Measured scan of single mutants.
Amino acid sequence: SEIVVAMYDFQATEAHDLRLERGQEYIILEKNDLHWWRARDKYGSEGYIPSNYVTGKK
C-alpha cells in the first residue's frame, strides 16, 4: 500500500472527507478520482483527501 505525507492541513467539510494534519502519514486506499483519493489515517479513520495536499513518502 502507498504511504503519503500531508504537506498542508485540510479541514474535512463533508462527512466522507478525512482531515489532514501537516506532516502526518496516510495510507492510500483508492485513487479512482484524480483530485480526491480515499485514505486512512493512523487512528483508522477513512475518507477522501485532496490529492494535491499530499506527497509520496521519501
Score class of each variant (00 low, 15 high):
residue 5 V to I: 14
residue 49 I to F: 06
residue 32 N to Q: 11
residue 4 V to I: 04
residue 15 A to I: 12
residue 3 I to W: 11
residue 51 S to C: 12
residue 25 E to A: 08
residue 11 Q to H: 13
residue 37 W to Y: 06
residue 26 Y to L: 03
residue 34 L to C: 15
residue 57 K to T: 11
residue 35 H to T: 10
residue 19 R to L: 07
residue 11 Q to D: 14
residue 34 L to D: 14
residue 57 K to Q: 10
residue 8 Y to V: 08
residue 1 S to V: 15
residue 50 P to M: 05
residue 4 V to A: 06
residue 39 A to W: 03
residue 2 E to H: 11
residue 34 L to M: 12
residue 5 V to A: 02
residue 22 R to C: 11
residue 14 E to R: 15
residue 58 K to R: 12
residue 47 G to L: 02
residue 30 E to K: 05
residue 28 I to P: 00
residue 34 L to G: 12
residue 33 D to M: 09
residue 53 Y to R: 07
residue 9 D to S: 09
residue 23 G to I: 02
residue 40 R to S: 05
residue 24 Q to N: 08
residue 58 K to D: 14
residue 21 E to N: 07
residue 45 S to P: 01
residue 39 A to C: 04
residue 22 R to S: 09
residue 27 I to E: 10
residue 51 S to T: 07
residue 7 M to Q: 07
residue 42 K to R: 11
residue 4 V to N: 02
residue 23 G to Q: 04
residue 49 I to W: 02
residue 17 D to I: 15
residue 54 V to K: 01
residue 11 Q to F: 14
residue 8 Y to N: 06
residue 11 Q to K: 11
residue 9 D to Y: 05
residue 29 L to Y: 02
residue 31 K to Y: 05
residue 15 A to T: 11
residue 27 I to K: 07
residue 20 L to Q: 01
residue 16 H to Q: 12
residue 43 Y to S: 08
residue 42 K to I: 09
residue 55 T to M: 11
residue 51 S to Y: 07
residue 20 L to P: 02
residue 54 V to P: 02
residue 8 Y to H: 09
residue 55 T to K: 11
residue 12 A to M: 06
residue 17 D to R: 15
residue 46 E to S: 05
residue 6 A to T: 02
residue 31 K to F: 06
residue 55 T to L: 09
residue 36 W to F: 08
residue 32 N to F: 11
residue 12 A to C: 10
residue 28 I to C: 03
residue 48 Y to L: 12
residue 58 K to V: 14
residue 49 I to G: 02
residue 34 L to W: 09
residue 48 Y to R: 12
residue 13 T to F: 10
residue 26 Y to T: 01
residue 16 H to W: 14
residue 10 F to D: 00
residue 2 E to R: 09
residue 48 Y to G: 02
residue 43 Y to N: 11
residue 17 D to M: 15
residue 54 V to L: 05
residue 39 A to V: 12
residue 24 Q to V: 06
residue 19 R to S: 15
residue 43 Y to M: 08
residue 50 P to C: 10
residue 41 D to F: 02
residue 4 V to L: 05
residue 19 R to C: 14
residue 17 D to E: 15
residue 15 A to M: 12
residue 6 A to P: 01
residue 50 P to F: 05
residue 35 H to P: 04
residue 10 F to Q: 03
residue 21 E to S: 08
residue 49 I to A: 01
residue 19 R to Q: 12
residue 13 T to Y: 10
residue 20 L to W: 02
residue 41 D to W: 04
residue 16 H to S: 13
residue 43 Y to F: 11
residue 36 W to P: 00
residue 40 R to A: 06
residue 49 I to V: 09
residue 52 N to E: 11
residue 14 E to N: 15
residue 55 T to P: 02
residue 33 D to V: 05
residue 26 Y to P: 00
residue 51 S to R: 08
residue 57 K to I: 14
residue 4 V to E: 00
residue 37 W to E: 00
residue 17 D to A: 14
residue 12 A to W: 04
residue 18 L to S: 00
residue 42 K to H: 07
residue 57 K to C: 12
residue 49 I to Q: 01
residue 14 E to Q: 13
residue 40 R to N: 02
residue 31 K to R: 10
residue 49 I to H: 01
residue 46 E to M: 06
residue 20 L to M: 10
residue 51 S to N: 06
residue 21 E to V: 14
residue 36 W to Q: 06
residue 3 I to M: 08
residue 35 H to R: 10
residue 52 N to H: 13
residue 24 Q to K: 08
residue 1 S to E: 14
residue 30 E to Q: 09
residue 42 K to S: 08
residue 19 R to M: 10
residue 28 I to R: 01
residue 24 Q to L: 08
residue 56 G to S: 15
residue 42 K to M: 12
residue 54 V to W: 01
residue 28 I to H: 00
residue 5 V to F: 09
residue 26 Y to E: 00
residue 15 A to C: 14
residue 32 N to G: 12
residue 30 E to P: 01
residue 38 R to Q: 05
residue 38 R to T: 06
residue 53 Y to I: 06
residue 38 R to A: 03
residue 27 I to Y: 10
residue 12 A to Y: 04
residue 55 T to C: 14
residue 30 E to A: 09
residue 7 M to A: 05
residue 46 E to D: 05
residue 10 F to K: 08
residue 25 E to R: 08
residue 15 A to N: 10
residue 33 D to T: 10
residue 20 L to N: 02
residue 8 Y to A: 09
residue 41 D to S: 04
residue 28 I to Q: 00
residue 40 R to Q: 08
residue 11 Q to L: 13
